[in-house]
Design a protein around this nucleic acid. Structure first.
Lengths: 201, 201
DNA sequence: CTGAATCACTACATTGACTGCATTAATACA
DNA sequence: TGTATTAATGCAGTCAATGTAGTGATTCAG
């Protein structure tokens, strides 16, 4: 990696660090892009060279993680049932996210920030919707005879919706990371299985 | 209803009408609030007196409809199983939305606008998330022994996620209204039931 | 090793969404 | 009629985001 690229990455990191610090001490909305740029010792224009919008700074690495998760759907085990593939993929994504992100406090506070700021929530949900579409496509390619586009979207939407909602409740309740992970796993199981099991009979 | 209130409603309607016309002819992002205000013959300041943000003009009546749907969850039929209540509520909301909104072309084009503009998508998803939380609460009150907050969130998230994803696919495909409604119904059934049925055995 | 091309970064100007504040004029109401 | 509301306005200002033109440090070709 060349010197130029290393420098670029350094200013990017500086922006993220400066911003998260300011967000923590002042709140997200009370922090202006100008303040972030000043704290990172770059011009405002440079900020927008690295991030298309203020909101995207917080999402920074979310996209990469999602892209990583999508790959699981591309390779079902031979003869693997749809529900098993779904659970396997979701569990892998949850485990990975749980290990890397939530345990290290850095990313946990980032998630709390997202859950508590409406603007960030909205951006996050949009990203999730994009990811869903990708996953639905991959799933449909994996089971071409069984799933039409609607069914694929419904199945993926169901699981992602359940996991997201459960995670949101758990995080906004300030549960510790392990509990959040547990809630997500449970939600995935519920979505894939049958609600009927919930109430006796 | 007094004269004052009627006048207020009239300028509100004028703003919506003017805006939708401009959006149709110029696109959402290319239309400025100043243009909308001018077309409705009010000041820009008045626009923001009626809508907290440009995006909210498009969502106008969505909230009312959601509030209406939430009420179904407050009153389960005696002895009604969770899954039946869910299907009944979702079907009622879908039917109502389908009849009132989608069939009259006005609201259908509104939905297409939302699906096609990222900013509006995001706002819509946020509203849905808020509604989900309300519904989850109502559901938990209806089945206090069976559902903890996480399970309630997961169940509701699963159904709403499935229906939303299916609707998004159908609408962006430019399916006619009846097909969109059918896709939503099918998604609800899939989410409530068991995916296992999808692939033979 | 040198000149040209590339690219991160900057300064400046501008647009457009949104807010606070003070004011006006039309309704409501006593 | 006189007084209180309140929808609507004008204006000044903040902030996010974009276009343009330019500078200087790296990269690379010959």
């Amino acid at each position: 990696m060349g010197l130029r690229e290393r420098k670029k990455r350094r200013t990017r990191e500086a922006l993220i660090t400066a911003a998260m610090g300011l967000f923590r001490s002042q709140g997200y909305e009370q922090t202006t892009v100008a303040q972030i740029a000043a704290a990172a010792e770059v011009s405002v224009r440079t900020f927008f060279l690295h991030f298309p919008a203020k909101e995207d700074l917080v999402m920074a690495e979310v996209s990469e993680r999602v892209a990583l998760g999508v790959r699981v759907f591309e390779q079902p085990l031979p003869g693997e049932h749809l529900t098993d593939l779904l659970l396997r993929a979701v569990n892998q994504m949850i485990t990975h996210t749980g290990d890397t992100d939530l345990v290290s406090g850095v990313a946990y506070s980032r998630v709390q920030l997202i859950v508590s700021v409406p603007d960030l929530q909205a951006r996050m949900l949009r990203r999730l919707a994009e990811a869903q579409a990708l996953i639905a496509d991959a799933l449909r390619r994996a089971y071409p005879e069984a799933l039409d586009p609607i069914a694929a979207a419904a199945v993926v939407g169901s699981v992602v919706g359940a996991v997201t909602a459960a995670a949101a409740v758990s995080v906004s309740r300030e549960d510790p990371p392990e509990r959040v992970v547990a809630a997500m796993r449970r939600a995935a199981g519920l979505a894939v299985g049958d609600f009927r099991a919930l109430i006796g009979q």
